[in-house]
């Protein structure tokens, strides 16, 4: 029965926090926000889960191997967009070349880059938290 209030309130809040994080992720070019903030908000939701329901259940939601994979995948995505633009004959991260015209190309480029940043930040944050919180565990 411990932490009953905390448990009930967290259950209500966690899905909303995750959705809000994703909203910030995909509106990086319309308002304040973007990949970094979104990654932090997203990981905050999982950290709240870990605080209320315990560290081990939280670690089960996203296994560590997948976290490591995601952290590198985000980086690859970021760098990959840059290299694709070079392949297309432009400069590194010259988004304009990605679409049929300048505007849509930039939209796609920014979305992909922010996605890469968001994925990396969220997973690295969680790796940090899990390794610090797990210190001294028997």
């Amino acid at each position: 029965m411990h932490n009953l209030i905390l448990r009930v309130v967290s259950k209500v809040l966690i899905p909303l926090i995750i959705l809000f994080g994703l909203y910030v992720q995909f509106h990086g070019e319309f308002g304040p926000g973007g990949g970094f903030q979104a990654g932090v908000i997203f990981s905050a939701a999982i950290i709240l889960y870990a605080l209320v329901f315990g560290l081990e259940p939280a670690e089960k939601i996203i296994p560590k191997s997948i976290l490591h994979l995601l952290a590198s995948f985000g980086l690859v995505l970021y760098a990959g967009v840059g290299f694709v633009t070079i392949m297309l004959g432009g400069n590194y991260l010259e988004y304009g070349l990605l679409g049929s015209d300048q505007v849509s190309g930039q939209l796609i480029g920014i979305l992909l880059i922010e996605l890469g940043v968001g994925i990396t930040v969220a997973s690295v944050m969680l790796i940090f938290f899990f390794s610090f919180a797990g210190r001294g565990r028997p």
Binding site: H2, L48, L51, V52, F53, L55, E56, G134
Partner: peptide, 19 residues
């Protein structure tokens, strides 16, 4: 989340013990 985290730290001294 910060307040909850600090409270847990003050109460338990760590994050990994079972609530």
């Amino acid at each position: 989340i910060g307040v909850i985290a600090v409270l847990r730290l003050v109460e338990h001294g760590d994050f990994h013990s079972n609530p």
